[in-house]
Design a protein around this nucleic acid. Structure first.
Lengths: 121, 121
DNA sequence: CTATGAACAACATGTTCATCG
DNA sequence: CGATGAACATGTTGTTCATAG
């Protein structure tokens, strides 16, 4: 068992939730997470988001579609990669989320214990 | 800023607290931590405890004394290394503990936020 | 500048080995 | 076996580079 939850798992969890809510391409989700964790001084690195997305595709949770961003091709040709659940994606995702939840609680338990043991909080 | 608290920092925190309470040599503290975190399935690796101790010595928080374990030399010649605070060790240790506390709280905040954001807890 | 991807370098970690009494 | 230490191998991470429009 690892010490703490892995950053990769943490990010994958958020990606799954964001795709559940129809929000979704890499850069956008990255920016959202950055904004999300600004108060904590945590800046998820770009490479980790893409690695996490690739893994989720590899694991059969997501599949990809490409799309041009914006409607007017003269204005914006930017191609983006959208992520969607595969047929059995939701099932797999829920299993994964369950596992991560367990780990999350375990970590919270350890950190709270550390606070008690070392600061008497 | 790193994602989560480092295992090294976590262990150093416990070592400081244990030395504060006069408990003290490597193997013993390792066993205590193992027992301590058994419910969490976390087994601190031996190498990390020693690395952490060496770092704390290097940073001028602890100094070492050697001692034979047990009273009767015919029974037990085992040599152990005890750790004590240096003169300005307590000051340094308190500063370190303060920093770790900040990080601990930051991590708790992030994990609790993840629980809310992804599980609606 | 948005967007994706890969390469690479650095570091923290886990496992194994070495030594001693 | 208890005790300490170091070596080594692995894996995760952070930074940088590459490409494209």
């Amino acid at each position: 068992m690892a010490f703490m939850i892995a950053q990769r798992a943490f990010i994958k969890l958020y990606l799954i939730t964001m795709v559940e809510q129809q929000r979704g391409y890499g850069y956008q989700m990255l920016e959202e997470m950055k904004e999300n964790f600004k108060p904590f001084g945590y800046v998820p690195p770009q490479s980790e988001i893409y690695r996490a997305l690739h893994e989720l595709v590899h694991e059969g949770v997501f599949y990809r579609t490409k799309q041009l961003k914006g409607n007017d091709p003269r204005v914006d040709f930017q191609e983006i990669v959208l992520y969607h659940f595969t047929e059995d994606g939701p099932e797999k995702a829920n299993l994964y989320k369950k596992q991560v939840k367990t780990d999350l609680d375990r970590c919270l338990g350890m950190l709270n214990k550390a606070a008690e043991d070392n600061y008497g909080v």
